[in-house]
Design a protein around this nucleic acid. Structure first.
Lengths: 216, 216, 216, 216
DNA sequence: TATGAATGAGGTTTCATTCAT
DNA sequence: AATGAATGAAACCTCATTCAT
């Protein structure tokens, strides 16, 4: 019997399905959803074209499956960081570093979501994503509020715009990767990765801490 | 005789061509290049389908034309700001405000560039865009360096990552418009526009100034 | 600009469209709707495959167009017969002959309707067909009632089942054409046509008159 | 070892095979052969898709098997009727009633045969069907001829067209079921069944007897 | 200059079937 | 004996483009 393309996709994915999703993610992040044909995916994943329909039902459903598959990774382990015995500033640094690390790891699906979410055309259920985002936001929110209450952080700060600053700095770098690669003379992808995890992260840490401490 | 689809496109664009480009920009920004058919564009612009090929040569060339058409807007008139008699901080605020104002106005073409060209697949000439970007960067660069030399700005700052912070904050907000619209309870597009030009801009100004003044 | 596939199809059909419809009717009557591919139709009509979509929008819409195109033929000109100065029996003979003549001419579309629409699966608007059928039925109905009132026709007759008898006799012959061709040793299609218009018609005339006169 | 898909199909059919055939018959009668996929059949019969090929060899062979399976039912027990001690008219009524009863019971397979047989495309062996039909025809034929010889039935009758009249009346009613259901205000399928076995049957009986007795 | 008609290529999906177990 | 996995073929449709006027 054929697969039952319903809600259970994320539950049980065999190796080949995961392989297809990985390939699909890469291609879609690169060329967009409409710019990626199932033929391309099938070819890159080295499976028969019909397998995509067989496994996922349709191209749209494939995207949904990819989405469900990655959503689990979205949940950040911020709590473990917050439970550590660190100063507020050390903690803030940790949060920034972890956040950038996670979105860099999941940058592909984030790019897809960013693009497909920004235009309301695709009829995919983004609630999970939005909820996850809100949760993460809330964790950082509360942490900063606590810092403000304890007089460590400046109270005159737009907390809700801090995440855009953190993530935005990274994404703008990533979306203009080729430009910055040339500007910063980063030889290969590894150099880029390294730059992200060191210099860029430090810059964001410094920026966030600055805005959180600066009076006025 | 048919149009000569070469370098002259930017030179002379009649009203209908401009109308097509405007429509195309909106649709492509919304649905992506591959997600937008020439039929869609023709229908939305209320012109014959053959007009696109007739005027621009091809769909790809249309994008190039759009690109050339908008590239002129990329040049920011920062010089006029810099020529004003303002303090470094006032100047910095002006630069941030102007920058956000410009990219918000041109957000659609920027989105297209971000998502369609961040990968090297599209074979469109990028030099103009890159050069423009470098120029703008250089202006800000020099201004900040001058501020550092005069002891106003902190020397321990990654200047090259400041633009990603400025632009990134805006773009992350824009790409997650639907999310922030809900979070910040912004009723309509005008409320969003207003938020961008006031609160968001202020946040970025504050952030940039903070990082430029904070002694680490 | 592309065709506007809406309600106006029946209004203006060019020669090529009519040609396509004729070919489609023949093939669909022969092989069924699902047994006929647009490729088959395009090939038989000697047009490009894309023309079907171009002209009619889709395969389904093609069928609708065919339906609308033929529906006009359904209207039988019984009135002209009824206005003639004939005896009731001569009139009845004329009605039967005309009816068989018409359905034989339109046998293909009738077959399609019979087999493709007898079940409610196909979501095509049937009202026109049903209304037309009811109208024709009513004309015969009234004629027979008049004959009954004048004491010419037997009153003990199920008028509503007379059309099934007339049409059914023809259709059963037509649907088992190959069988009767062999049984009656009819060489070719012309022989079949001839048989229909002479012997079969006479049989139906005789049958109808018999049941209308026989005193049970 | 796999099944031997040859002549033995009709011989031994297990419960699951019969179940498949029943489901297939219903679906094919409803949607046509090409409009019915083996997936549909498998799903409706609640068996694995591969079972169809496994049991019957192919989709075509399934139809043949269905055909062979039902052919046995085609043989009408006209002899038992004829052996009864009834008048010619009573006998004729019995024959008509029995005929309609049988084809109504087997209406689905008859519809399939009618459609798939009328077009010579399907390469199924219809000889059995044709022979059976001829036999049945012959029985009725002989009965009527005997009636004519004994001076009970009118000699001026096209005997070969009597079956089309009997069956055709029924089939035309059945193929336009929805129309007559509305016209005759028959609430459900049972009401239709009832109408067929009473009113419609009486009409046909009356019609046949009329044409067989009417002098003209 | 401008456009309706037309087309070949390629898109996604479903098909009946076979393979390996 | 029975089945889940897999596949090539072909289905319908849309695409960007060109042709003829």
């Amino acid at each position: 019997m054929q697969h039952d393309h319903q809600k259970c996709i994320a539950v049980s994915l065999n190796d080949k399905q995961i392989q297809i999703l990985a390939v699909a993610e890469e291609l879609i992040a690169k060329n967009g959803f409409d710019g990626t044909s199932v033929r391309d995916i099938a070819k890159a994943a080295k499976v028969n074209i019909a397998m995509i329909s067989y496994y996922f039902g349709s191209k749209d459903k494939l995207l949904e499956a990819l989405f469900l598959y990655r959503i689990s990774d979205f949940r950040m382990v911020l709590e473990t960081v917050l439970s550590q015995d660190l100063s507020f500033f050390e903690m803030m640094d940790e949060i920034v570093a972890l956040t950038i690390k996670r979105i860099h790891k999941n940058r592909r699906i984030h790019k897809i979501v960013n693009f497909e979410f920004s235009n309301g055309t695709r009829d995919i259920d983004f609630d999970l994503y939005v909820n996850q985002k809100k949760e993460n936001l809330l964790v950082i929110d509360n942490f900063i509020k606590k810092g403000q209450e304890e007089g460590v952080f400046n109270k005159n700060v737009n907390i809700q715009m801090l995440t855009p600053t953190i993530l935005g700095t990274y994404f703008h770098f990533y979306y203009n990767k080729r430009f910055y690669q040339s500007l910063l003379e980063l030889e290969d992808d590894q150099a880029i990765d390294n730059y992200v995890h060191t210099t860029l992260t430090q810059h964001v840490q410094q920026t966030i801490k600055a805005v959180l401490t600066n009076e006025k």
